[in-house]
């Protein structure tokens, strides 16, 4: 568990200030405001996790940093100055959904990448490409068309593509997506190696355990706004993980009011989180005794417990529920 952020706030090298973006998907449809005055900071040499539900604005934020989408309002600052094309030469990007053209080969993709990032000398490109492909296990397939590649192979190529020019900042959008368990471990090790090299990383994933083990800071977005930053709370991602509920009781056919009445009647331990999803109420507890204390009263009342147990690898959903509680209180 990474806990290297303690105490004073480090200096930001990439800052997003008051970013706003509204899209109109169709002339007849109402506009959708994706970002609502978003402020974010990223720090030199640290790994920052960006978390949020689908549509929270994570990908829009990343695309704005990369210059793919233009903000309606606000600024993106790189070391205190508005970000430029040249600054973007120091960024490596691994996109979740992007696919390379199927008729090209890994060698051709990486050759173009080195050329557009002006990596010199060009005479060394062939060697560099071969060693990179070797390191991601694609050397044998270097001249094969990408349309014959599996999802895992595509991800490995995407990693090679994002890192071949040795960027100072790596932006990773769902890097674990579609990988098998071994592939995930490999990807995690690659990210850790880059982190050790001093590369700043912006990691955007739905996999909370990966964020918890890799990131120094966490920033949570909801509806285009920053709702939580571990920096503001002076709290490391490890401490945040510890604060999350680990044991859950899911009760069917009840309302939060019913649960509250039950708690008052039996003087039960309070829950840490309560999440209602239709007729299902999920209670989250930090410790096992608190969770088990609810079982007998619920059964006596005739409530149906559809799940009881621990979740050591707390999901992203738990994190978001946790902060929903925090911000609605």
């Amino acid at each position: 568990m990474s806990t290297n952020f303690e105490g004073s706030r480090p200096t930001s090298f990439l800052s997003l200030r008051g970013l706003e973006k509204t899209f109109r998907p169709d002339a007849l449809k109402p506009p959708i405001q994706l970002l609502k005055g978003l402020d974010l900071d990223f720090f030199e040499g640290s790994c920052t996790g960006l978390v949020g539900h689908n549509g929270a604005g994570k990908t829009t934020t990343i695309r704005m940093i990369l210059g793919l989408i233009f903000p309606d309002r606000g600024q993106i600052l790189f070391r205190g100055q508005p970000i430029t094309k040249e600054n973007r030469a120091t960024i490596g990007y691994m996109a979740e959904t992007a696919r390379f053209p199927g008729t090209l080969t890994p060698t051709e993709i990486l050759r173009t990448q080195l050329a557009i990032y002006h990596v010199k000398p060009s005479s060394s490109h062939a060697k560099l490409i071969d060693s990179k492909l070797e390191s991601v296990g694609l050397f044998k397939d270097r001249n094969r068309a990408l349309k014959n590649f599996s999802k895992g192979m595509q991800q490995r190529l995407a990693w090679a593509h994002a890192t071949i020019h040795e960027p100072d900042l790596l932006i990773l959008d769902e890097p674990f997506s579609g990988l098998d368990p071994i592939g995930r471990i490999t990807m995690k090790n690659w990210i850790l190696a880059e982190k050790k090299r001093g590369v700043s990383i912006l990691l955007c994933t739905h996999e909370l355990p990966q964020i918890m083990s890799l990131c120094d800071h966490i920033q949570i977005l909801r509806n285009g706004k920053l709702v939580y930053s571990s920096l503001d709370k002076k709290q490391s991602s490890g401490a945040l993980y510890e604060a999350l509920p680990k044991y859950f009781v899911d009760i069917s056919g009840v309302t939060p009011a019913d649960v509250e009445a039950l708690r008052a009647a039996h003087k039960l331990d309070p829950w840490q989180t309560l999440h209602q999803d239709g007729f299902l109420v999920q209670l989250g507890f930090k410790d096992y005794p608190s969770a088990t204390s609810w079982l007998a009263p619920c059964l006596a009342k005739g409530y149906v417990i559809v799940r009881f147990g621990d979740d050591n690898s707390a999901s992203e959903e738990q994190l978001l529920i946790h902060f929903k509680e925090e911000f609605t209180q």
Binding site: R63, L66, G67, L68, K85, E86, R88, A89, I91, Y93, A95, T97, A98, R99, F100, P101, T112, Q113, I116, Y117, H118, H161
Partner: peptide, 11 residues
């Protein structure tokens, strides 16, 4: 196929 992102997110 969003490959445009990989090429435009560059200098």
């Amino acid at each position: 196929d969003r490959s445009i992102e990989l090429r435009l997110a560059s200098p």
